[in-house]
C-alpha cells in the first residue's frame, strides 16, 4: 500500500518516516579535551556533589580520549568531553551537518557532566553559510543572551528563539537531559501542515549547539580548571523535507532523496515533474494533496510549460501550454491543425493523422492555407473547388498562371 494514495488510488498527503538524523554522523567539536593531558572531574552520583571522580583526558591514547564521535555512536555510555576550564565568554560548539534539508521534530543532549548554566541551539538552512538561533537555555537569560526568560510563546513570535531557564539546573550532576522540540508551545503547531511559518521554522540543514557558560566552580564544589562540558548522546529526530509528496526517503549516492509521488520531482518534491505543469506546484496538505497535473496535449506533445496568466484567466483550473506540437498540430493543447493543414473529420484529434495537408492548387489557390475545418482553400478569381483546381462556371482556363481562369466571352 502506498501511503501517498488511498484505496481508490486518489492522491493524499504523505510524509516520510521519522529518522535519527545524528546517529553515526560526524560532529565537529570546537574544543575537545586532551590535546595536552588534562585532569577532568565529574560526578558518579547524580545527586551527591561529593561523589567526584577525576580522570585524565589525553588524546594520544584511545583509552583516555573522549572524541566527538562518542556523541553520535550507538553506545550510550561513551562520552565526549570538552577541554577543561573553559571560561565565559569563550565557548565550545558542536556542529552537526545533516547533509540535506530536514524537518526537525526534536533535539536532545544527554550530559555526563552537569548541564551548562547557559547554552544555545542554532540551525542553518543553507548548509552552514548562515545560522539562526532556535533556543537559548540559561539561568540568566537577560545577562547572558540579552533576552527575557520566556513564558508563553505568542503567534507573533512563534518563529523566534526564546530563552528558558528550564533544564539548566545543576542537578542531576550527571545524566541530565536538555531537550528541545521546535513545535512545542507554538500556537500554529496543531495546524503545522497549513503553516508556512512553522514549516520554515523546523527546516534545517545543520545544527549547532553552543555551550556558553558552565556553572561556577563554587556551585560545582570543585576547581574551575577541572570542569568541562560532557555529552554522552546528541540525538536529532526529524524527517526528510518532502513537502507532503513522499512517504519514503531513499539513500542515493548523492544522499537521502525523497521518493516523490503526486507527479512531483526534485530532492524535496519541490517542483512538478516534466509535462505535469497544468497547475502550479504546491505543498500538500491533509485536505488537498495538490498533486501536479499533466498538460492536455492530445498525444501530440510531451512537453509543456506553465503560464500563471492563463491559469488565472481559467479561474485557477488550467495553465499548461503545450510546446513542440507534432503531427502538424498547433495551439495551447495541440488541439488544431497548423497552417497548411486541415482536420480529417473521420479521425479524433488525438490521432497522429488528424491533420492532413490542405493540398491547395499551386496555381488556382491564393496561398497554401485552407480553412481548418472545411479544408476550403482561398481561390483566385474564376477558380473553384475545395483545392481551387477547377475553373468556375462561365470561366475557362487561360495560359496565365497568374490568372488561370478567364471569363468566357
Amino acid at each position: 500500500e502506498d501511503p501517498c494514495y488511498d484505496a481508490k488510488q486518489r492522491p493524499r498527503y504523505c510524509i516520510p518516516d521519522f529518522l535519527d538524523l545524528a546517529l553515526g554522523r560526524e560532529v565537529q567539536a570546537s574544543g575537545t579535551c586532551g590535546k595536552v593531558p588534562q585532569k577532568l572531574c565529574s560526578y558518579q552520583d547524580p545527586t551527591n556533589i561529593t561523589s567526584r571522580k577525576c580522570l585524565i583526558c589525553d588524546q594520544s591514547r584511545a583509552k583516555t580520549s573522549y572524541p566527538p564521535a562518542y556523541l553520535t555512536d550507538a553506545d550510550a555510555q561513551t562520552c565526549w568531553k570538552s577541554e577543561a576550564g573553559v571560561k565565559f565568554p569563550k565557548n565550545v560548539t558542536l556542529t552537526l551537518p545533516l547533509g540535506r534539508r530536514f524537518e526537525l521534530v526534536y533535539l536532545s543532549l544527554r550530559f555526563c557532566s552537569p548541564r551548562p548554566q547557559s547554552m544555545a541551539v542554532y540551525k542553518s538552512m543553507d548548509h552552514g553559510r548562515s545560522w539562526v538561533p532556535i533556543q537559548y537555555y540559561s539561568t540568566q537569560c537577560r545577562r547572558v543572551y540579552g533576552l527575557p526568560t520566556s513564558g508563553t510563546i505568542t503567534k507573533a513570535m512563534e518563529h523566534e528563539a526564546s530563552c528558558t531557564d528550564y533544564q539548566t539546573g545543576l542537578k542531576p550532576l550527571t545524566g541530565g537531559l536538555v531537550a528541545f522540540m521546535p513545535l512545542a508551545g507554538r500556537p500554529s503547531a496543531r495546524r503545522f501542515e497549513y503553516s508556512p511559518v512553522l514549516q520554515d521554522w523546523v527546516t534545517a540543514t545543520d545544527i549547532r549547539v553552543v555551550f556558553s557558560r558552565l556553572h561556577t566552580g563554587q556551585e560545582l564544589g570543585m576547581r574551575r580548571k577541572t570542569t568541562f562540558y560532557g555529552v554522552t548522546e546528541l540525538q536529532v529526530g526529524g524527517r526528510c523535507k518532502c513537502n507532503g509528496h513522499a512517504s519514503h526517503c531513499a539513500s542515493m549516492p548523492e544522499g537521502l532523496t525523497c521518493d516523490c509521488r503526486h507527479h512531483t520531482a526534485g530532492p524535496e518534491c519541490d517542483r512538478c515533474k516534466a509535462f505535469y505543469h497544468d497547475r502550479p506546484w504546491q505543498r500538500a496538505t491533509p485536505s488537498n494533496s495538490h498533486e501536479c497535473v499533466a498538460c492536455e496535449c492530445n498525444l501530440h506533445s510531451h512537453r509543456c510549460r506553465f503560464s500563471m496568466e492563463l491559469y488565472a484567466l481559467s479561474g485557477r483550473r488550467s495553465g499548461g501550454i503545450c510546446t513542440g506540437c507534432r503531427h502538424n498540430t498547433a495551439g495551447r493543447h495541440c488541439h488544431y491543425c497548423k497552417q497548411g493543414y486541415k482536420r480529417d473529420p473521420g479521425k479524433p484529434i488525438t490521432s497522429r493523422r488528424s491533420c492532413k495537408p490542405c493540398q491547395c492548387h499551386p496555381v488556382g489557390a491564393i496561398s497554401a492555407m485552407c480553412n481548418q475545418t472545411t479544408g476550403q482553400c482561398q481561390c483566385k478569381i474564376g477558380v473553384t473547388g475545395l483545392t481551387c483546381n477547377r475553373c468556375a462556371l462561365g470561366f475557362q482556363q487561360s495560359r496565365s498562371a497568374y490568372m488561370p481562369c478567364v471569363r468566357i466571352r
Binding site: 492548387h361 499551386p362 496555381v363 488556382g364 477558380v383 473553384t384 473547388g385 483546381n389 477547377r390 475553373c391 468556375a392 462556371l393 482556363q397 495560359r399 496565365s400 498562371a401 497568374y402 488561370p404 481562369c405
Partner: peptide, 23 residues
C-alpha cells in the same frame, strides 16, 4: 456540371517560374 481540373501543361510559365510545380 463538373469542370475539368486545371491542366498544368497549358500554362505559359515564362513569367511565373516560381509557381511551376516540380515535375
Amino acid at each position: 456540371d463538373v469542370m475539368p481540373t486545371l491542366d498544368m501543361t497549358l500554362f505559359d510559365w515564362t513569367d511565373y517560374e516560381d509557381l511551376k510545380p516540380e515535375s
